[in-house]
């Protein structure tokens, strides 16, 4: 399994969490089931947390709820405590105050074409983001915007400031998005599939950039992705989500070198590997149920090959080691069950 990562990588675990989200429970009005069912996420300074899962697992919705970007009239958050940079916010009562949004916490989105306004120049849009949070002279704001474009590695920044999004390539647009997000020195950056729409060579460049900026600024990063390769490349900690629940969470070295949850094992077996071609892929049977059809208890049990009566009870996220938790009644599998063909 080539997803394993180098155990000698420097450990960036610092002491106090920069941001923590506790027990987020969320449903969309008119639905009978929670879309997000008790998600806890923690990110420390200088650390990259990757939230990984398939479409519909709630990874983007969690991030949107955290940022306060979900429409209030169609969302019902019944629980969720957000501790961020010393502020305590009860998400069930209020959402992230707008002076913190884009300032303490910034977000970049998957599709750089649709998240930039085609009618304004790049410079204009970056300056708008800056001016939302600080009052300064036009010259200073422009200098700041220019500085940001330089930092994200855009050639000819003076010229680019006056260009429109359609004049830039996909990779450049994503760099502009990152420049805009970082313009106010956020403590936490949320990146929702930032490289999914890009080619591999450009993806490698953007991941390098995020890594450099993280080292430079010490910001905490929450990266949402479906690509286990990207997780292995950039993450310090990882949370595997399925059906709105975190099924496995911990240091990336431990989760990838010692996967415990049947879903994590299934995802890793289903990935075509570069070093073992031609073998038949073992897969995760079935598809993700819709929110209305989500089973009670362990939500993965309808697709799990090991599911038993016990799984109708929800397994707690139990610690395997100090920095690795798994939500499965039968973990570790090899100690608790056997399979005969």
């Amino acid at each position: 399994m080539s997803l394993q990562v180098d155990l000698n990588a420097p450990n960036r675990a610092h002491t106090t969490p920069l941001m923590s989200l506790n027990n987020l429970i969320l449903r969309f009005k008119g639905q009978t089931n929670d879309v997000i069912d008790g998600v806890n996420l923690t990110v420390k300074s200088g650390e990259v947390l990757c939230v990984v899962g398939e479409s519909g697992c709630g990874k983007s919705v969690s991030a949107m709820a955290l940022m306060g970007l979900l429409p209030i009239d169609s969302t019902h958050i019944s629980s969720g405590k957000l501790d961020i940079c010393g502020n305590h916010i009860d998400l069930s009562q209020t959402c992230l105050p707008s002076e913190m949004r884009g300032n303490s916490v910034a977000m970049i989105f998957q599709e750089p074409m649709t998240s930039l306004n085609p009618a304004f120049t790049i410079g204009n849009q970056i300056e708008e983001a800056i001016r939302r949070h600080i009052t300064d002279t036009q010259t200073n704001v422009r200098t700041r915007a220019l500085d940001m474009l330089q930092r994200v590695g855009i050639a000819n920044p003076e010229q680019r400031l006056h260009e429109y999004p359609h004049q830039l390539s996909g990779g450049m647009r994503q760099r502009v998005m990152i420049a805009m997000a970082l313009a106010n020195d956020p403590k936490v950056l949320i990146a929702d599939e930032p490289t999914t729409a890009l080619d591999v060579t450009i993806q490698a460049q953007i991941l390098d950039l995020i890594r450099d900026l993280r080292d430079e600024t010490g910001m905490g990063t929450i990266m949402i992705t479906h690509d286990l390769g990207v997780v292995a490349e950039i993450a310090d900690t990882v949370a595997v989500m399925y059906g709105g629940q975190v099924v496995e969470q911990g240091a990336v070295t431990e989760v990838f070198n010692d996967p415990q949850h049947p879903y994590t094992i299934g995802l890793m077996s289903a990935m075509p590997q570069l070093d073992s071609p031609g073998t038949r892929l073992t897969l995760v049977p079935g598809t993700v149920p819709t929110v209305a059809n989500m089973p009670s208890g362990c939500r993965f049990r309808t697709r799990c090959a090991f599911a038993a009566k016990t799984c109708e009870m929800r397994p707690p996220l139990a610690a395997i080691t100090q920095s690795h938790g798994v939500a499965c009644h039968y973990a570790p599998l090899e100690a608790n069950l056997s399979v005969s063909s």
Binding site: P262, L337, S338, V339
Partner: peptide, 15 residues
Amino acid sequence: RFALYRAAVEGGTVT
């Protein structure tokens, strides 16, 4: 663990 998973997905009986 990976072997168990493969066997179970391919229809083995879980004890």
